[in-house]
């Protein structure tokens, strides 16, 4: 399979445990759902039971956080076998993960750590994507992560690095528009140049999310509405791609389903119209100690699962 066979699924939401009952009961008019792959690998409890019901009604995509495609550790084939097993069982439309590493020496930091962007890393990751794609027997979709530092050893812009991965492997891209904004602020590059130059034909999916602006840096918290500059970048990306599957992630302070859905549907306002001058400034948020990729992303709240 090549990525040009992958469909535009429309507007989707990240599937979260807080919304299970609402989705099962109301079958809301969402086009598709994205799951965190690791939450359902080796899983035999209620989350997996609910997923099996949801996928009878909605297309589902698998989004991973532990492939560690940029690590110098050997690829973890036990992990990949479980990933493939899950994909065989639930038949996702595609499988994605991040341009990152999560650890070395067999350790998992459970963070999406940045890679140095240079020719050597590019070749290293190209080789690994090819191995993964051969193993999974499908293209891998790679997402740009939110990053909080730049390495001295980086000499390629991230969009160019991603284009290099695409050219060498045929992989797809998951363009996280919020991550572009966050990384651009933190590492002082131009997000508009990024979106204008990334390979639009290979963007299979886009992500939207909220973040926390801490004044001198921004943390990708997924715990609030999407800010206006990110919507404007989304408008630009929508125009450049001609429209592609778009998904809202909301992982901290998760509101009720209808609030998340309403935030997602705002995307429709940005699918048309001319791209004007984009004001990239956003107000500073005074909350303390933001953590990227909040834990709700990856942990099930077992205490809520008892018989009342």
């Amino acid at each position: 399979m090549t990525i040009d066979k992958l469909p535009n699924l429309g507007l989707g939401l990240g599937l979260r445990g807080e919304h299970f009952n609402h989705i099962l009961e109301h079958k809301p008019a969402v086009d598709w759902f994205e799951i965190i792959s690791e939450n359902f690998m080796d899983s035999g409890g209620r989350p997996r039971h609910v997923l099996d019901q949801i996928r009878e009604h909605y297309p589902v995509v698998m989004h991973g956080v532990s492939m560690s495609i940029g690590s110098t550790d050997p690829l973890d084939f036990d992990y990949l076998k479980k990933l493939k097993q899950l994909s065989t069982e639930i038949n996702p439309v595609w499988i994605s993960d991040h341009l990152c590493w999560t650890g070395v020496l067999s350790i998992n930091s459970h963070d999406l750590l940045p890679v140095p962007l240079n020719e050597g890393t590019l070749e290293h990751i190209v080789n690994r994507i090819q191995v993964v794609q051969d193993f999974l027997e499908r293209p891998l979709i790679i997402e740009n992560p939110s990053t909080y530092l730049a390495f001295q050893h980086s000499d390629i812009p991230e969009w160019e690095f991603l284009n290099g991965l695409v050219a060498a492997t045929g992989c797809g891209l998951l363009l996280d528009v919020n991550n572009v904004y966050v990384s651009a602020f933190n590492n002082e590059f131009d997000p508009i140049e990024y979106i204008e130059n990334i390979n639009h034909q290979h963007i299979v999916q886009m992500h939207l999310a909220g973040h926390q602006h801490c004044g001198d840096h921004i943390i990708d918290t997924h715990d609030s509405p999407v800010v206006d500059p990110v919507w404007e970048l989304f408008r630009l990306a929508w125009q450049k791609t001609g429209g592609t599957s778009t998904l809202l992630e909301w992982d901290g302070n998760i509101p009720d389903f209808d609030t998340c859905h309403a935030e997602l549907l705002k995307a429709k306002q940005y699918m048309n119209g001319l791209v004007g001058d984009i004001d990239l400034a956003t107000p500073t948020d005074e909350r303390d100690l933001a953590v990227s990729n909040p834990i709700d992303f990856m942990v099930t709240k077992v205490a809520n699962s008892f018989v009342k």
Binding site: L149, H153, N186, H217, L289, V291, S292
Partner: peptide
């Protein structure tokens, strides 16, 4: 700075500290 670039807003150590703080905060929360 052998590994990390400073920016106009943060020193290299401050950039690294964002990851250091998130690592332990995330795992404590878990």
């Amino acid at each position: 700075e052998t590994y990390i670039k400073p920016s106009s807003k943060l020193t290299a150590r401050q950039h690294l500290a964002i990851y250091q703080r998130s690592y332990i905060a995330r795992l404590r929360a878990c």
